[in-house]
């Protein structure tokens, strides 16, 4: 046996950065879920370094895929073979692990998505980034306001017998509704369950508007850990919801799968190697004065070498690398 070929999948989201390492048979060897904390470059470097020390001996990275809202940045830093949007990555992971998937519900920290799959092909999707009422951050915030650890949120909701109705249309309305109900003396678990139902109602009305939701329905993203939300989905859709084993890192997994496909064709990876990650990455931004658009250009450097530039509309900076 030669060296073991591994694939790296990186999902840099606004709230969390997920990294996975899998072998070519889709076995996940390493899984790293950390908060982005507004410092994507540093967090990414640190966790990759940590990860590299856990990898089996005699193994090489044969491909790297990046996704998430920070995918361009991550791709430039590590040297990615594939930089893909979250929809394709999440859909790819669901299709690969559960080939009979028809609908993917994905609720992350800052956005929520629905992906419609028919016969193993993504045929439609919807994504919500503007509204905060349907996302994990909102649940997080409400949990901390009620002083409940987010990990117990689901259990608490399950204990409720008579959920309270909470307005789910908008995070502002939801919060004032919750405060009002709490001051009237309703039980915390009933409020929590009411919130879960409101979030699901909002998701189905907003993201799922006009979509045909067929089983099998797969629920991914950090919020899938919350049993209260899962139960609310099952009640409202009248169908069983599958939460895959690696629900929290499906985006990263999808990126790694896409990288595996890509390197099958290209035969060689663009991965810079863990050693190069120790170098200093400098990211600077400046305003271009070339025209009145005044684009904000971001520049990533390793030492004196420019590895990536973006942010310009005309492409003159992106080209001049």
């Amino acid at each position: 046996m030669g060296e073991c070929e591994l694939y790296l999948g990186i999902d840099v989201g606004s709230v969390s950065t997920n990294i996975i390492v899998m072998d070519k048979n889709l076995n996940v060897l390493e899984k790293n879920y950390i908060r982005t904390q507004g410092r994507p470059i540093q967090i990414l470097k640190e966790s990759l370094m940590e990860l590299s020390s856990n990898l089996p001996l005699r193994s090489t990275i044969a491909g790297v895929g990046c996704t998430g809202s920070g995918r361009e940045l991550a791709g430039a830093i590590v040297g990615a073979d594939v930089v893909k949007n979250e929809i394709t990555a999440h859909g790819m992971a669901a299709i690969t692990f559960l080939p009979d998937t028809s609908t993917v519900i994905e609720i992350g920290g800052q956005d929520s998505k629905m992906i419609i799959i028919r016969n193993g092909i993504i045929t439609d999707f919807a994504m919500n980034t503007v509204c905060a009422a349907g996302t994990g951050s909102f649940l997080d915030r409400q949990a901390s306001r009620l002083n409940i650890p987010i990990s117990e949120f689901g259990e608490l909701a399950e204990a409720s017998k008579a959920p309270v109705r909470i307005a789910g249309r908008c995070a502002v309305f939801a919060e004032s509704d919750m405060v009002h109900k709490q001051q009237m003396g309703y039980e915390v678990e009933d409020i929590v369950k009411g919130l879960c139902i409101a979030l699901v109602r909002n998701y189905l009305n907003n993201v799922g508007k006009g979509k045909e939701i067929l089983p099998r329905v797969v629920f991914q993203g950090g919020v899938a850990a919350n049993r209260g939300i899962k139960n609310a989905f099952e009640d409202m859709l009248g169908t069983e919801i599958t939460v895959p084993e690696h629900y929290d890192v499906m985006g990263a997994l999808g990126a790694a799968i896409l990288a595996r496909e890509e390197t099958k064709k290209s035969k060689i990876t663009k991965f810079r190697g863990f050693e190069r990650l120790k170098d200093d990455f400098i990211s600077t931004s400046f305003e271009c004065n070339g025209c009145p658009n005044m684009c904000e250009i971001v520049e990533i450097k390793i030492g004196n070498q420019i590895v990536a530039r973006w942010g310009d509309r005309c492409g003159k900076w992106a080209e001049a690398q």
């Binding site: 809202s69 949007n85 979250e86 394709t88 993504i122």
Partner: peptide, 30 residues
């Protein structure tokens, strides 16, 4: 396939790029 693209005062286009890219991917697969 039809997608709706709502614009407002946003100048950060990350979310839009993601959607456009995903929409094009979806069409290619179809």
């Amino acid at each position: 396939p039809i997608m709706t693209f709502t614009v407002d005062e946003l100048t950060g286009d990350g979310g839009y790029n993601t959607r456009l890219e995903a929409f094009v991917d979806t069409i290619k697969q179809r």
